[in-house]
Design a protein around this nucleic acid. Structure first.
Length: 666
DNA sequence: AATTGGTGGATTTTT
DNA sequence: TCCACCAATT
């Protein structure tokens, strides 16, 4: 039995043991937030609350996974009925069970950003949108804003109204949903169908929300509906770490919660267990420049004399070299473990140089963020096949694969098929099927035959994936049947290695499916669940052994919730952080950029390094850079700055390392 | 009619 | 650096 009183501080103890009624926990950075949630779940189980009545929602898959794992270790129980998931996968789960009430099939496809972009382009074309107005990013924001009630139609954006309607209609016709729908549709079900809401209220009587400051209004409404009756809801958040407002996060939800659940118990966790005094003091000082925040005083018992290091270098190349070499030094000198080192950046494009340099210096690293394995073109092709096989009305997937590998179905043919589909209001797949029998069809007999073969593949594998043995094995046969490897060789005929590499990725993909399929803990090994799982985990979250022993290279956003002994923050320059674009959008975004900087520096447990370049290549151009203004918002006595260290030759570096090694062995 | 190769343009953060 | 669009070629 766990001695809760002994293992937790008084505030944490109160947070863990107050399981009836609404609770608001304001948890500063590093104050043991995850610990509180996991102990709280454990405490509930000890109080004989059934697993199936507990719902814990997080923001990222990584967090969900980690929480699950920690509860499992803490309790030693088999967690078969506990629900720990992200908002989006919880939404997907509800839709899987109930989406037929909205007229979709349960085999619906989930569109990621790429698919969404394709669809928007298609809709823009169909509505004859003026090419000058075609700004996909903007349209995406408007569509998302309207769907989630964040914005209204105005004179300015109403030109996109037609595209929006078209977009929505297409999704429905394709039996497809986008990321927003994963919250919008369950929310709609809850508000329109009281019996469904009642069913979920009875199931999930105890609800916990992690990273509450990152929830959107819509997500808030969703959980409010669910929790309103039983009122056992615990939200945990930190307004200082709200960094997703661009995606609809609304930290005012904390105030809404206070209003909607006035009987709440409020608990503040202010003791920081993560960082040393220096880092915490700098962070506190920095964040105090923000207005309109809940007052907090984070404190720690960890004294130290290490200052934050600020390093000036010439350009991004030198910056990367400094980081790579310094990592090698601290690994040798301070016996730091690679996986306890984090290299953080504001934007993905800063990662390329760092990556190359780490590679050259033999520093093992692991990326999170950036392109996911499942977003690689070759893998995405196969996924599109699988989606189309499960849901042939999914036009986006059909269009992606209809001529991949090349079968001789070109632009013209596709145009014809598309016209028929639009005229008759049917999907591309149905249109193909009707072309085959049409007397005056606009396509030649040769092409008809090709189309026949294409349909045969879809139908054949639809049957096989639903009825026969191993999913992974069937997919391998599919890849073989469509001659994908030959296609790759043709596409990259000037470089066999690329083709081989891509093919290996696909083989890896099928291996992943096989492992998932054979996992004894997997209660639901059907292909649809797998496709859903990977659509929702856009990032690679390796919890494999390979994760150990590697430096973590990631964006600040991706680093939220993580901690490292040593943190390098690269590109601490004006225009990068705060990001120029963010400020241009709205000068008040400076506060969010500051929170981002705050999140970055509070990832460090012991030592923090900030690097600033004098010049940097941005979009092919050399630009003179100036240090980030945030540097001046931290007490100067906590920071020591260095001019670039003299360049060392390869031999000198080797000699230094040899010396260090010698010192150790003495 | 399909494919290939060239040129120009663009890059915040993510479920 | 990578991707999308356009014109010439088979």
């Amino acid at each position: 039995m766990i001695d809760y009183k002994k293992e937790l501080n008084p505030e944490q103890y109160q947070a863990v043991t107050t399981i009836q009624g609404p609770v608001l926990i304001i948890a500063g950075a590093g104050s043991g937030k995850t610990r509180v949630i996991t102990y709280r779940i454990s405490y509930m189980l000890d109080s004989h609350i059934p697993q199936k009545n507990i719902l814990a929602l997080t923001f990222t898959n990584k967090a969900a996974k980690e929480m699950w794992e920690r509860v499992r270790q803490l309790t030693g129980k088999k967690l078969t009925n506990l629900t720990v998931s992200t908002f989006h996968s919880f939404g997907a789960q509800i839709l899987r069970e109930k989406i037929h009430h909205l007229g979709y099939r349960p085999n619906f496809s989930i569109y990621d950003t790429q698919d969404q972009t394709e669809l928007i382009k298609q809709c823009a074309k169909e509505t004859n949108l003026h090419p000058e107005l075609l700004n996909i990013g903007l349209i995406k924001n408007i569509i998302s804003g309207i769907k989630t009630d964040r914005i209204q139609w105005t004179e300015e954006n109403e030109v996109y109204q037609q595209v929006f309607l078209e977009y929505q209609a297409h999704l429905k016709a394709y039996h497809a949903v986008d990321f927003d729908d994963l919250i919008v549709l369950p929310n709609k079900l809850f508000s329109e169908q009281p019996n469904i809401l009642e069913e979920y209220r009875n199931r999930y009587k105890y609800i916990m929300i992690d990273e509450f400051q990152d929830t959107s209004i819509l997500q808030y409404n969703f959980i409010k509906q669910l929790a309103e009756k039983n009122r056992n809801i615990c939200v945990v958040g930190d307004d200082d770490q709200s960094i997703y407002s661009w995606r609809g996060a609304n930290y005012q939800n904390i105030m809404l919660f206070e209003k909607d659940f006035p009987e709440r118990v409020e608990i503040k966790l202010e003791q920081n267990y993560r960082s040393v005094q220096t880092i915490l003091e700098a962070a506190n000082h920095l964040i105090s420049h923000n207005t309109n925040r809940k007052d907090k005083k984070l404190w720690t018992g960890k004294e130290d004399n290490n200052k934050i290091q600020l390093i000036f270098v010439d350009d991004e190349k030198k910056e990367a070299e400094f980081i790579a070499e310094h990592i090698r030094t601290i690994v040798l000198k301070e016996r730091a473990a690679y996986h306890q080192i984090g290299v953080l950046v504001r934007t993905n494009n800063l990662m390329a140089t760092l990556e190359n340099t780490l590679l050259q210096n033999n520093v093992p690293y692991k990326l999170s963020g950036g392109k996911s394995f499942f977003e690689r073109k070759e893998v995405k092709d196969i996924i599109a096949y699988l989606r189309a096989i499960l849901n042939p009305d999914d036009d986006i997937s059909i269009l992606r694969i209809i001529n991949t590998p090349k079968r001789g179905i070109g632009r013209q043919t596709i145009q014809h098929i598309g016209d028929i589909a639009t005229e008759q209001g049917i999907s591309i797949y149905s249109a193909i099927s009707s072309i085959r029998y049409a007397e005056d069809s606009p396509v030649s007999n040769t092409i008809k035959k090709t189309l026949d073969e294409f349909m045969a593949i879809i139908e054949d594998y639809n049957y096989r994936l639903n009825n026969t043995g191993s999913i992974a094995e069937t997919i391998r046969e599919l890849i073989d049947d469509i001659n994908y490897f030959e296609y790759l060789l043709g596409e990259y005929r000037d470089n066999d290695n690329i083709a081989r590499y891509k093919y290996q990725n696909i083989m890896l993909f099928t291996d992943l499916i096989e492992r998932w399929e054979k996992d004894p803990d997997n209660l639901n090994p059907n292909l649809w669940s797998y496709l859903t799982k990977i659509s929702l985990s856009s990032r690679e979250d390796n919890t494999e052994e390979s994760e150990k022993g590697k430096v973590n290279l990631m964006t600040i956003h991706a680093a939220k919730g993580l901690e490292f002994d040593h943190v390098f923050l690269a590109g601490v320059e004006d225009g990068i952080i705060p990001h120029q674009r963010a400020i241009e959008d709205d000068p008040s975004n400076i506060e969010e950029e500051r929170r981002l900087f705050y999140v970055a520096i509070t990832r460090a447990k012991q030592k923090l390094y900030l690097t600033t370049c004098k010049k940097r290549k941005i979009m092919r151009e050399e630009k003179e850079q100036t240090p980030s203004p945030f540097l001046e918002e931290m007490p100067q006595h906590l920071i020591t700055s260095e001019e670039p260290s003299q360049e060392m030759t390869e031999e000198e570096v080797d000699k230094l390392f040899a010396d260090l090694k010698k010192r150790f062995s003495e």
